[in-house]
Design a protein around this nucleic acid. Sequence first.
DNA 1: CAGCTCATGTGAACGACCTTTACATGAGCC
DNA 2: GGCTCATGTAAAGGTCGTTCACATGAGCTG
Lengths: 246, 246
Amino acid sequence: MSWRKEQGRAERGYHHGNLKEALLQAALGLIAEKGAAGFTFADAARMAGVSAAAPYRHFRDRDELLSSIAQRGFEQFEARLTAAWDDGRPDTVTAFERVGRAYLAFAREEPAFYNAMFESGLPVDTNAALQAASERAFNVIRAAAERLAALAPPGTPRPPAMMMALHIWSMAHGVASLFSRGDAARRKLPMSPDELLEAEVLIYLRGLGFPTDRRPQAKSAEPPPVPPEASSGSGVPPGGPWGKPK
Amino acid sequence: MSWRKEQGRAERGYHHGNLKEALLQAALGLIAEKGAAGFTFADAARMAGVSAAAPYRHFRDRDELLSSIAQRGFEQFEARLTAAWDDGRPDTVTAFERVGRAYLAFAREEPAFYNAMFESGLPVDTNAALQAASERAFNVIRAAAERLAALAPPGTPRPPAMMMALHIWSMAHGVASLFSRGDAARRKLPMSPDELLEAEVLIYLRGLGFPTDRRPQAKSAEPPPVPPEASSGSGVPPGGPWGKPK
DNA sequence: CAGCTCATGTGAACGACCTTTACATGAGCC
DNA sequence: GGCTCATGTAAAGGTCGTTCACATGAGCTG
């Protein structure tokens, strides 16, 4: 019966003591359950054990609470993408795909954040802090794309990193929002969203001329600063980037 | 002022005569303006010139109206994709890309439908008719992918058509929902959403081994469709694609 | 410790919305 | 003309978002 301060604290008197945080947590839970559209300010207040008017002491209105959550979400998102990128180790392509998986994992594991960030319909450009946070997150993908672009096989024109980053973002967002979350996940698929995205990214990278046939696991040998990625230009994995067609 | 039957018809008495359709049209307009979340049943009724209770004679509740719109949207969507595919003329790859552009065009030109279909958060699987309509639309992409897969260059493993279709769908949806509509469109891009998607699809197809250099377009040789904009690294808008830090 | 102040929470109230219910209207049909 | 039933209305209950006047008490000041 999560109710009031939850932490088993003293029953609390007139003042809550940590209402702002409690509201954010409550909202996060509610959004995860019912989506940003279904979440109500009043519910969050109730869940925190305060009156419906109390939240207005901490947020100008419902949208500001949503923005706060979105912003916090972008920050965690950035952190997870950064960790996944791991500065391009052990090799750029592997790390790049790991970023893609981290994107999906975030969408799956933090549906409330993802919803507030990308599906709540709140205007990104009206809140400077929010916009900055979202840019920082995107910059992780962008920086990774930059590194990848620099490795473009000789002979082929170097792809614009910005374009690559946008492509990867759109793939990840597309898969996440169509197949990887909530009701959408109920669509019947021949493969998991993770596999779907991985194959998509691999095919895409191959289309840019990157060799994508490195072995995923048995590759513990630390590659040199410039990994053997710029080797053969047409390494087609046996069976393709996708698994076995079922 | 648009009010009551609009068409300048006689002032109408007790009965509207065509309320169901009027409500659908009104809702379509409202959703286009304010999104599915912002649209209200009461507003639609007002716009049709009837009381707030009248709509309940034609729709069980607000969600059913939304579902009706989504379904109608899927039908139009299917029609447009089918027309764009044009049974693979003049050649499969060209027609395939045209389907991609048709996807974006629909998202851009019919924001209300697109919103109801993909962004309203209504559960797809609770309405059999809706689900069937959405499947029929997807099947256009799927059939096109099937034809494309059959053309896979000899020597390379044939990609599963279903997977290709899902990949294309995710790309199109990703680009549409991130860059091509409403507030999202305000994000600054180095290229138009259409160009972005076209490049993405072409690179992807190339990754599958399809020749994508048909169409003598002042192209050097056979390299990937790297658009002239956003030349490498530095052609990047200040502030990234999320918009300008302001 | 007395007293003051101000951030924080309360209750009541307003208008908008969704939805239901009992009742009104009138178009189509005998 | 009169009946019936689909269609529309008014009224009411419940929920929300939001505001406002007022209450409370934590922390400082002396």
